[in-house]
Structure formats: C-alpha cells, structure tokens
C-alpha cells in the first residue's frame, strides 16, 4: 500500500496535476475577496461610461467575500477536481499499466484507496493554499474572518469536495474511457446538487455542507453533523462501489 501511495503521489507531482490544482485554487481563493471588494467599483466605473444604467451592489463586506469564496466550492472546485481525477483508474486500464500492477501481489481495493488518498492529499494541499490566499486578502481588505471560523468553513467545504472526489474515483472505475468517466462524474455531481436542493433533503445531503460552511465562516455554529455523517457515508459507499467494480473487472 505504501508503494502504491508513493507512486500515486509522485505521479501527481511529475504530471504537474498538483501544481495545476494549487494554482487554480489559489487563483480562485485570492479572486474571491478581491471580487467582493472591488466589484462595486468596477460596476460604478462601467455605469459612468454607460449613461442611464444604474447598477446597485451591496456594500462590500466580509459576508460578501465569504459568499464569493464559497461559491467556488459548489462551482469551480468540483469541476477542477473532476478534471484532475477522472482519468485516475480508467486511463491505467486503457494503457495496460493496471494489468502490469495487478499481476503482482496487489489487492484491488488497495489500488482504489491509494488513488483516493493521494488525490485527497493533493486536494487538501491545494485547498489550504487557496484558503490561505483568500484569508490573507480577506484580512487585508475586510479585517476578517476569524481564523477558527475560516478553518471550520474550509473543513466543511473540504468534506463536500471529498464526496465529489470519491464519486469521481467511482466513475473512473466504472467507465470504459476517460471521456465517459468525466461525463459520469459530472452526472454524479449534478445529480447530487439537484437532489440536495430538494425540499426535505436540503439540510442533510452533502451539498448542505457548503451552506453550513458559510454560516461557520461568519461565526455561527450550525449543526453540521448530520450532513457530515451522510457525506462520510457517501464517500464510504462510493469507494466500496469502486473497489467492488474493480474486483469484478477483467483486464
């Protein structure tokens, strides 16, 4: 298992996927407080040049910065995760490298778990960088949020993204091509978002973690445990499904 994990990590570094994800998340992390602070000024300048049009935006505040930052967790970040993780298993099966590994004394669930853990490590590092960028500019521009609140916000958001990652690994195991894995991952994500917005399910499915993360960032302490437990169950079921699917596959 250690050998598999070390290989996965080295591949993420050498293929520059770690670097790309860090740059993307840092960019969006920094952009969020900047957008919240200067969007009003940009629109004001635009309204001056377009006579008769008046654009009214709320007064820039830390609330706006957090809303902007959290929008990434439900829009840009899942997409970035799907793009970097969708090939993780299917591409190895297509190229034939998986058969070379599985002809050795390796248990198939170890493949799934090592890929998920390495990708999760990459996600957490990129998220930490993006979060630090967002926190730094939020403090400079708005004087907040409190570090603990921001940390809790990111932990809740990271748990939601971990679900997306697990579903992407499952899609990569089930699909017969990388493109199909990407499409299936998008399908999982969109379905989860859609079902998570249904009345009655809204409070406890994984997408609720993003809403609850906003409250955590603003100093409230909502009850996140229900959604967190469901998210962990989703991760467990998705990974177990991936292990089972790989176990049944012939190479």
């Amino acid at each position: 298992m250690r050998a598999l994990l070390a290989k996965e990590w080295l591949e993420l570094v050498r293929s520059r996927r770690l670097l790309v994800l860090c740059v993307v998340l840092l960019f969006f992390g920094i952009l969020s407080p900047l957008t919240a602070r200067y969007m009003g000024d940009i629109f004001a300048m635009m309204s001056e040049s377009m006579q008769g049009i008046v654009i009214q935006l709320p007064e820039p505040s830390i609330h706006e910065a957090i809303v902007q930052y959290l929008a990434n967790f439900s829009e840009n970040y899942p997409l970035a995760i799907i793009l970097v993780a969708m090939a993780c298993i299917v591409a190895e099966r297509e190229r034939g490298t998986l058969a070379m590994v599985l002809a050795r004394p390796v248990i198939r669930w170890q493949i799934v778990l090592s890929k998920y853990l390495a990708l999760l490590g990459m996600l957490l590092i990129a998220l930490a960088l993006g979060g630090l960028g967002a926190l730094y500019y939020s403090i400079i521009l708005f004087g907040g949020p409190a570090f603990v609140d921001f940390l809790l916000l990111n932990l809740a958001g990271a748990l939601y993204l971990s679900v997306i990652l697990a579903l992407t690994v499952l899609a990569s195991t089930l699909a017969r091509s990388t493109v199909a894995a990407g499409a299936l991952s998008l399908g999982f994500w969109l379905t989860l978002s859609l079902v998570g917005s249904l009345p009655g399910l809204r409070g406890w499915l994984p997408p609720a973690l993003v809403t609850q993360a906003a409250e955590l960032g603003l100093g409230s302490r909502p009850d996140v445990w229900q959604a967190a437990l469901v998210a962990l169950t989703f991760i467990g079921v998705a990974l177990a499904g991936a292990c089972l699917a790989l176990q049944r596959q012939e190479l």
């Binding site: 290989k7 080295l10 591949e11 293929s15 190229r95 034939g96 490298t97 058969a99 070379m100």
Partner: peptide
C-alpha cells in the same frame, strides 16, 4: 508476467 505489449508509466 510480461504481456504482449508491456505498458509502463512514461514519466518514470
């Protein structure tokens, strides 16, 4: 085991 066309990680 050696398959007909052995596949490796090109980055290694």
């Amino acid at each position: 085991y050696l398959p007909e066309e052995p596949a490796f990680y090109g980055w290694m």
